[in-house]
Design a protein around this nucleic acid. Sequence first.
DNA 1: ACAAAAGTGTTGTGATTACACCCATGG
DNA 2: CCATGGGTGTAATCACAACACTTTTGT
Lengths: 240, 240
Amino acid sequence: MPGKHPDHPLADFKVGIDNVIFSVDTEQHRLLVLLVMRHEDPFIGQWSLPGTLVRQGESLETASYRVLSEKIRVNNLYVEQLYSFGGPKRDPREAEHAYNVRYLSVSYFALVRFAEAELIADGVSGIAWYPLNQLPELAFDHEEILTYGTLRLRNKVKYSPVVFDILPEMFTLSDLYQLYITILGDDFSDYSNFRTRLLKLGFLKDTGIKTSRGAGRPASLYRFEADAFEPLKDKPMVFV
Amino acid sequence: MPGKHPDHPLADFKVGIDNVIFSVDTEQHRLLVLLVMRHEDPFIGQWSLPGTLVRQGESLETASYRVLSEKIRVNNLYVEQLYSFGGPKRDPREAEHAYNVRYLSVSYFALVRFAEAELIADGVSGIAWYPLNQLPELAFDHEEILTYGTLRLRNKVKYSPVVFDILPEMFTLSDLYQLYITILGDDFSDYSNFRTRLLKLGFLKDTGIKTSRGAGRPASLYRFEADAFEPLKDKPMVFV
DNA sequence: ACAAAAGTGTTGTGATTACACCCATGG
DNA sequence: CCATGGGTGTAATCACAACACTTTTGT
């Protein structure tokens, strides 16, 4: 195979993965993305999505999980592949090599529970949750990746029950409502209709336990019933 | 950067693209995918998705389009990136190299007009449209890629107007209905309700021209009005 | 007592479904 | 004149948005 098309030599690639890790701070109603400070060239001193280059024998998913677990400790999370960015000239390191190496990035999208996500400080590393509306300038083409990830997040929560992966086991219906508002903005149905719709779907089980948060009537804690959701899995369904 | 983690050497990749090219033969009500016969090892003599390895200086999209245009001549098509498969051991060529080279495949999804898609016979090459329900055994992990592509196709046509990219300029409403049936199966609303719904959306313009196909009342030819669809672009909308 | 938050009910409107039925053509 | 496919109409049901109202708590 090599040398077969001498006029059209194949490109050699290093493959990186970049994680777009979202979380929601329900207390402060903020949608957050995890960024890390770069300590190496290129883009030293700039914020970037947590990523890494894929090692020998390592799958893409493993590499993605490796960086994630180096940065945060988390119990529950949702992950899926996002997109691959692989054009020439997207990484300045390509110029450094005499031999023509390309850098391709496979991006992953993750959603984690904010309360349980403990950032791992390794002494030097800058690592922080940034609200989506107060982003710093990002390295590489990470802004494009993040934009695409945000689009996917907003679509995902509308049509699939991913949010239950990042809510606690038991939650009130206003927790759920607030979560949607924080992710999507507040331009959808009012709380009362939201309640009725979600409850009619039948996969939220009232535990009977009440919780009181300051003034106001105590709220019931609900649980997401995966079994009851199962039959609805493939139905088109808008959650908000 | 090289030599920084001597315990964890980076993997070197060749990047391939594989196209899942769908078309619909409306006459015969068959959903088709384009396959090519391999003339090289590995998997010589087996059918596979049309793919290629990415060349120096070439973007992923360009590579994808290059193979596509080597295989068929087509006027109208819809393309989007599908998924990246990159685990170790997915390509037997990895074993051939003394040095550890990995093969990553970025798959692309395409939808082309059957009537205008002229297959390019280059003398040797086997190339053929295969009905989705009569597939031969496929090389590599192409079956997995195709399964994923099919899923994407079915979702795509439900929520976006891609089908109009592969219908002729002017078409009857039963053409449209038949097309959906061929892609999705016939378990959705009846023709009469399908009509009403689509017409109410307002982006199908009756040209007034009638067409007669054998017996029965002649049908009106409709045109898809991109302008009229524009404002509906971001609304959640089920087409069938 | 009253504010705050949770939860219920009502009402009008519009979408969806399952049909029955009419229309225009070829044989 | 009838089979064939195109096209219209309708009535029952259901989903949805807006919003008024009741309930249960803390202060």
